[in-house]
Amino acid sequence: MHLPPLLELGSFALGKQMLLVALSVVLVAGFFMWAVRRQALVPSKGQYLGEVGYGFVRNHLGRDIIGEHDFRPYIPLLFTFFFFILVNNFFGSVPLLQLPSISHPGAAYVLAGIAYVTWVVMGIKRHGFGHFMGKMTMPPDVPKILYVLLIPIEFLSNLVIRPVTHALRVFATMFAGHIAIMVAASMTAFLITEMGGLGAATSVLSVVLGLFIYFLEVLIQVLQAYIFTLLFAVYVQGALQEGH
């Protein structure tokens, strides 16, 4: 699953996951550059797919969540998050590659860190540091005496725990799904090679289980790319909106 490094230079190590991350950048950039190479009023299939993908992120994750007046500056980051995570997740379902890059926590935390810094900085820029911290830690329409308890709770929830769960959600699901597929495949191999004729016959059930898990994992791979990007849009919207 997590193979030894392919190349080591001092403290730097180049492994399979780093290569897959680099490959994902090439694939995403290459596809959309190819899709828009010849823009036409009547789009080709490639241009149509590119426009549908861009329109989905722009309209459903940008405009509808962040708002008509504020969403445009965030389209590039929303677009990058969604398709970068989607392709890296899909690597877990590609034969021979069979490793979702986001199953390594480092990749997930970097993405969540970029999202966290972005919405916090933009929130402070919009409202000022004091007002922004008030928005994050002081819920409206609450008796002031309760702020003694709520301020530390809201601070931990919104500014400490939120980025951690943002990363863990996509990492944990990719890691768990990959482990499940590996277990099903190992079960099939064990039944065929170690259990003899009866084991080979019952291995059909483990194959069916593995196929079910495989297609379920494909669905989860799409959902996790969507959820990560959706949550980023929600966090941006919450940081930018005016307080009550």
Rank of each mutant, 00 (worst) to 15 (best):
Y54E: 01
F56P: 08
V57C: 07
V57Y: 03
V57T: 05
G62N: 05
R63T: 01
D64T: 15
D64K: 06
I66F: 03
G67M: 08
G67Q: 00
G67E: 02
E68Q: 10
D70I: 08
R72N: 12
P73R: 04
P73I: 01
Y74H: 05
Y74Q: 05
P76I: 02
L77N: 00
L77K: 05
L78F: 10
F79E: 00
F81M: 00
F83C: 05
L86A: 04
L86D: 01
N89P: 10
V94Q: 03
Q98K: 13
L99K: 03
P105Q: 06
G106T: 11
A107V: 13
A108E: 07
Y109M: 00
A112H: 00
G113M: 03
I114D: 12
Y116T: 06
V117I: 09
V120W: 02
V121N: 05
V121M: 10
M122G: 12
M122D: 15
I124A: 11
G128A: 02
G128N: 05
G130E: 02
H131I: 15
F132G: 01
M133E: 01
G134M: 08
K135W: 00
M136A: 07
T137R: 04
T137P: 06
M138L: 10
D141N: 11
D141K: 12
V142E: 02
P143Y: 00
P143H: 03
K144M: 14
L146W: 06
Y147P: 14
V148E: 13
L149V: 15
L150Y: 00
I151A: 06
I151S: 04
E154W: 10
L156S: 08
L156H: 11
L156T: 10
S157L: 12
N158I: 07
L159W: 00
L159E: 02
I161K: 12
P163H: 02
P163C: 01
V164L: 13
T165D: 06
T165A: 07
A167K: 06
V170Y: 00
A172N: 15
T173I: 12
M174Q: 10
F175L: 14
A176C: 04
G177Q: 03
H178D: 06
H178F: 13
I179C: 01
I179W: 07
A180Q: 12
I181S: 09
I181A: 08
I181C: 03
V183H: 12
V183W: 13
A185R: 09
F190W: 15
L191V: 00
L191D: 08
I192G: 00
T193C: 10
E194T: 10
E194L: 09
E194H: 15
E194Y: 10
M195V: 12
G197K: 15
L198T: 14
L198G: 12
